[in-house]
Design a protein around this nucleic acid. Structure first.
Lengths: 269, 269
DNA sequence: ATTGGAGCTTGATTTGAATCAACTGCCGAT
DNA sequence: ATCGGCAGTTGATTCAAATCAAGCTCCAAT
């Protein structure tokens, strides 16, 4: 469970930004002065840190992690081919990772939400295999990989955690492979909506009403579909009453049915 | 470069099994009595071990690795959901890993050739996320993960190697994602042929003539295509003279052109 | 020797999503 | 205030691959 011991986090969560319907830049307005908050005070630590880590060990990790200033929409964290030196954790906002195929098209390989770790694909060749950009105002923690490697050798639970993070990414990508190779456009869109819903829930945000951080184009690219198809499916899902969507604001009015669609139990009309 | 210091390996490579056109069960007939060969004597070590490891350290790793008896075609190494305890390296033969989708269909997530390591997707949940079966007679090395984790803490280059193996798998899966989402059936098949070719070359086998270890059905499943489509593409590539194929025996008669197809520079007819 | 089946191929037809095209709303720059 | 353009929607048409169907070949079991 998540204990919101941090004042700033609680404020951002509760009062939020009244100008938008769903929480967007968590901890931005009220506390961007506070972006250097430590791991032990971060309410996302339960997602991005190993649970087993002792307070003293967290302090060691804390000393390694670099917290940068907030990123603007469109800012690159790294580019494909850049020398790899760090992995990153999302503190607020959303990022996308993508690579450019031989034929020059962009292929999005993942969206990263607060608490999630990205950049792990760069370890193998010591070069980033993809680029990462902020989809909106965002803040990240930079984790120099050499330093965590060192520290990992002394902290088994940290080593384990990084093995797990990587393995998780593998398992996730393989699920995605199955989706791209077997599922219809409708199943893919439904699955993405549910994935974002679940990841929001993990951060104690609404699982049924949220603002999509990415464009239809990005969704299509990620799911191997064209914008038009994505748009049509949003319309269709709305028409049959499974979702209600106004641009990027989405409400899952019938998550169960959506789940059925994602699993191929049912098709929309 | 690869130094064939091992008598057995050299024999298997040179004389081979005269009953088949291309090398199949490397090191099987002549030396299956020898399947307990150590890492230091294994000619695949340059692929599956970190180069930087000292002789003394290799011995330590050697002591951990368990070498089982040869597997028969169809034998499972582990099943989806099994408790995870080890990762595996392929010694000879080929394996496929696959998971079953929510709708009950099999999705192949990878083929593993000699020297390659598989089973890494099980680390995150401590359960295997996929099943692994032998596609032909095969031998594998079992690497108990807890033990290498421990050893990794003391041998930085070993830790690094495992981080790299995992990262490599991530990068690979992401390339596959891009392929499934952007490439035509023709490009996918061409890419698979080239991938197998390259992996053969790495083991000092022919890059242009080889026996495919998997069925057309498996190829289709892996590439997100039907058998019929795969078959048609093999026929087409043969007709235009880029490959010559007799069932699973394949010769890449024009690898350059195949590369062009895979990269979308050219299409077959 | 015959049967049966798995693996593969080829052809005809269908179909889901891509492509092409047109239009709207909206925001930011001039 | 107007223009330009990006993001999104909707409709008409096309197309690549799936599906359906019918063969074949090879091997293993009877």
């Amino acid at each position: 469970m998540l204990t919101t011991s941090n004042v700033c986090a609680t404020a951002a969560e509760g009062a939020a930004d009244i100008s938008t319907k769903s929480p967007k830049d968590e901890c931005s307005k009220q506390c961007h002065h506070d972006y250097k908050i430590s791991c032990s005070g971060c309410r996302l630590s339960s997602i991005c840190l190993p649970i087993a880590l002792q307070a003293a060990d967290i302090a060691k990790l804390d000393a390694i992690i670099q917290r940068g200033r907030p990123l603007q929409k469109g800012d690159y964290i790294y580019r494909e081919g850049d020398t790899f030196s760090s992995v990153y954790a999302v503190r607020s906002g959303t990022l996308k990772a993508f690579s450019v195929t031989d034929s020059g098209e962009e292929q999005i390989t993942g969206f990263y939400l607060p608490g999630e770790v990205f950049g792990l694909d760069g370890v193998s060749k010591n070069k980033h295999a993809s680029s990462a950009v902020a989809l909106e105002t965002a803040a990240i923690c930079e984790i120099p990989f050499d330093r965590v490697s060192e520290l990992s050798a002394r902290l088994p639970s940290l080593q384990r955690h990084f093995f797990q993070l990587m393995s998780q990414e593998i398992a996730q990508d393989q699920k995605m492979l199955a989706m791209l190779s077997k599922n219809t456009a409708e199943q893919r869109v439904a699955a993405l909506l549910l994935s974002i819903s679940a990841r929001n829930a993990r951060r104690a945000l609404s699982a049924t009403a949220f603002r999509l951080p990415m464009s239809r184009t990005d969704i299509g690219n990620y799911l191997g579909l064209t914008v038009e198809t994505v748009s049509r499916i949003f319309s269709r899902l709305q028409k049959i009453g499974y979702i209600s969507s106004d641009n990027r604001e989405v409400t899952l009015t019938n998550p169960e049915a959506l789940r059925d669609i994602a699993n191929g139990v049912q098709a929309a009309d």
